[in-house]
Structure formats: structure tokens, C-alpha cells
Amino acid sequence: MALATRTDKRADRKAGDPGGGRPGKRPSVLGTLWGSTVGKKAVMAVSGLVLLGYLVAHLLGNLKIFFGPGEFNEYGHWLRTMGEPVLHYEWALWIVRVGLLAAVILHGVCAYQLSRRDIAARPTSYVHKRRRASYATRTMRWGGIILALFIVWHLLDLTTLTVNENAQPGHPYENVVATFSTWYGNVIYITAMLALGMHIRHGFWSAAQTLGMGSATRDRVLKITANGLALVLTVGFISLPVGVMTGLVS
């Protein structure tokens, strides 16, 4: 009954394509990656893992704030001189910045394009609603937008010092204390770090699946690692505003 009404809408396009196979020229590896949902997800996974790696290093550096202005500011200065004398002053820092920018752009563009596609693939929603998937999974897109906005604010606040209350170049310790001495600085930062934790919780595990590294036996280890990373990074970063608020850092 239903079969009779079915039409092959792509019959004309598929003509001359034996058995759906694509003989002859295939696009390059990058072309295949960018042109496929699976490939774009792999780009997202790799760029996400690069950013996650950076965050671990960033947290370790940030924690030096608990050892006083001398040590923290010295670390801030070292970031500019690292790589010397092989590299010129600030070159290593700029290489890292360009790499991070590329990762953020790739991650964001893929997320945008895949999300557009996903939303279009489900044009009609169900009348009978029910809760689907975990909170961390459902909030990946909004969480990503929150994090993107946070990065803009964070750079304006502590890199360019445009919106910083203290805005003393070369004195990152004093600038950080100034940020966390304002109520909005704490609210923005803590909200973003909670979003970060959720994003990593689903994102790390998801990246492992996308890159084909998960399996039924490895699933537990991956989930524990994802939750562990999310918890350590969130608690670690939030310890800074809490440190300033409690007067531990001043």
C-alpha cells in the first residue's frame, strides 16, 4: 500500500552512477573531511581537544596566583619571553594565540554548520514532549555560545585590558584581583566556568567517540576521565574568584 506511493526523488541524479558507487576521482582528505558530517565532527573533536589541552596548561599557570604577585607576574612575563633565544620576544605567545584562534574558529564554524543541518533534519517536532538526553548533552549548543561570548569578554578584560578596572599592563596579578573584586566579573566568570564544565563533560567523551577511540570496554574510563577533567577545570578556575572573594588573594 505504502510502497505504491513511494517515488525515488533522486532517480535522475543517480542515473549513470552504478550501484551508488563513486568510481574515479574522490576529493582530497581535507575535502572529504569538510564535506561530510562525520568529517566535520572529527574537525570539531580535534579542535576541541586542542582547546582542552590549552585549558589544562592555562589552569596550571593561573593557580600560581595563590603564591603571590611576584610569582604570578613573573610567570606572566615568562609567557612573553618563552622560546627565547630561539624565538624573538612574544613570538611563541603569538604562535600559541594564532593556533588557539584557528582552533576556536574551526570548532565554532563546524558547530554552526552542523547545528544548522541538524535542526533542518528535524523540521517537525513531536506533539508529545518528553525529556531527552542528559542536561550536559542538551546544553552543548547554548553552552558553546556562552563560552564564545565569555572568551570575547575575557580577552577584553585581561588581555587588552579594555574593560578592566585596574588595566595596568605588565601587572596581571593586580588586574585579575580587580576583575574579581567586581560583582559582574565574578558572575560572568563563574557562569562561564560552569558552562565549561558541562561542555567538557559531554564534549570530551563525544570527541573520543567521533575519533573512533571509544569502545564498550573503554566507555567507563572515558566517562570518568571526562567527568574528572570537567570537575578539575571548573573547580580549578572557580578557585580564582573564590580566592579573591575570600581575601586569600588580594
Binding site: G20, R22, T32, T37, K40, K41, A120, A133, H202, T210
Partner: peptide, 19 residues
């Protein structure tokens, strides 16, 4: 490669591992 390409061409969405 061909099955995934056809899956994309047919307008199915991508996987976000919701399970």
C-alpha cells in the same frame, strides 16, 4: 565512504551522541 556520503545527501542530521 559512499554510505555516509549518501546518508548526508539524503538530508539526515549529524550525530551529537545523545544516545
Amino acid at each position: 565512504l559512499d554510505m555516509v556520503a549518501t546518508m548526508d545527501e539524503e538530508g539526515f542530521g549529524g550525530c551529537t551522541l545523545t544516545g
